[in-house]
Design a protein around this nucleic acid. Sequence first.
RNA 1: GUGGCCAUAGCUCAGUUGGUUAGAGCGCCGGAUUGUGGUUCCGGAGGUCGGGGGUUCAAGUCCCCUUGGUCACCCCA
Length: 442
Amino acid sequence: MSKIKPQTLKGFRDFLPETMLSREHLMQTARDVYRSFGFAPIDTPALEYTEILLGKGGDESDKQMFRFTDQGNRDVSMRFDLTVPFARFAAQHLNELGTPFKRYHMGAVWRAEKPQKGRYREFVQCDFDTIGTSSNAADIETLMVIHELMDRIACGEFTIRVNNRKVLNGLLEKLDLTEQSVNVLRALDKLPKIGREKVLAEMTEQAGIDNERAAQVLDFAGLSGTTEELLTQVGAMVAGNETGETGVAQARELFDVASSAGLPAQRLQLDLSIARGLDYYTGTIYETFLADLPGIGSVCSGGRYDNLAELFTSQPLPGVGASLGLDRLLAALEELGKLETASTPTQVLVTIFDPAWIADSFRIARQLRKSGLAVEVYADHKKLGKQFQYADKKGIPIALVAGEEERATGSWQVKDLRTGDQSPYPEAELAGHLAELLAKNC
RNA sequence: GUGGCCAUAGCUCAGUUGGUUAGAGCGCCGGAUUGUGGUUCCGGAGGUCGGGGGUUCAAGUCCCCUUGGUCACCCCA
């Protein structure tokens, strides 16, 4: 009888323990950070009515949706991000939630696009948003959260690039280019990648604006200098335009407060060229790049929007938030060789010296678990060498052994597989000593 | 969605202009006088050459389709 070929769909993946341990570790860190800022967890269904999702992220995201008719003949789609379902969620539950409302949401999203490195059809996003306030304080806090996340996760340097769409929009208003803003911003977004000449060409050919104004936009985006210098120059360029002036003021406050709060200046960069592809951003915009691997793209992006849920409710819901791209970050860390290598969460392996004494092993294991350690009793009756080999292969740092001698004195041999050191400890001191040992190299 | 490249053991790959039973390293399993791993030595398992069709006396090798991977564009986490 022929077997079914075991295979996964294009862009979908299995995760082995080694990878999964890293994923869960990252998620736990993100969770800790979000909670430490007071964000509360929510979840929403993977599947929504198509009309809920359609047209919310621009034409591109519509094309990328997994869409089908369910058994009840409903037109349904899988969520392609966590923001749009959140808009629906917020509109539906606003009266129960109250504002401002801060939530985090970690879950898989699906996009039917062509897979590439760091781009999958199913991937996990870790979103956080603050809704119900237009205050710049929320924008500032969002920056702080991104910084804290990356500081604890990235294992290396990173740059958070910040811009404010109001600044850009102010300039476009002044140049009377509001109509073409979507195309102009999209072209502008490519500046670091394809260079000034090509962006200029795209603006004149596709956005249909004249050379002079395209050049002005580019001059604007290409400004350089310290953040303070940039803000001053930009301020002058948008002077007299209310939107632009507001944007500059907000950006200035954001950088000032971040600096006062102790965020390292070299990790923050005012980048007038980033615009973000998604259409719904209206204020501060964030993108985060790893210093060691900028090519993989932004690993944490977001921004401010004026009205998250306008399609679902007449209640205005301004907000700001960002999304950590867990799978992309993981792909980056893997490429940089910064992933953990253990393939089990076990910290201590209790060996079985003699099958007749198996109760001792289970007893001590239970006792150690109570003190918070991850403890595993070897699952088979094999000789000690095999048991150590197993521990070594799985990356378990410590093994316990008790033979006749140890049993007679109520003690266990504690072997540190990382160093090879071994010495006996009475059961009462075991937990404390193990905690001490484990704290060393991790 | 458009275009390029790729696909041989769990992994990284070798396989001469198409020619007998398809190889290596690493990994995996077992063993080297049963109270101790990582090193070394010995042995073993594992591939209908991604799948399907075609050309040929003969296909891992050539052609078509398909599935998957990868890169660029597009877009994005």
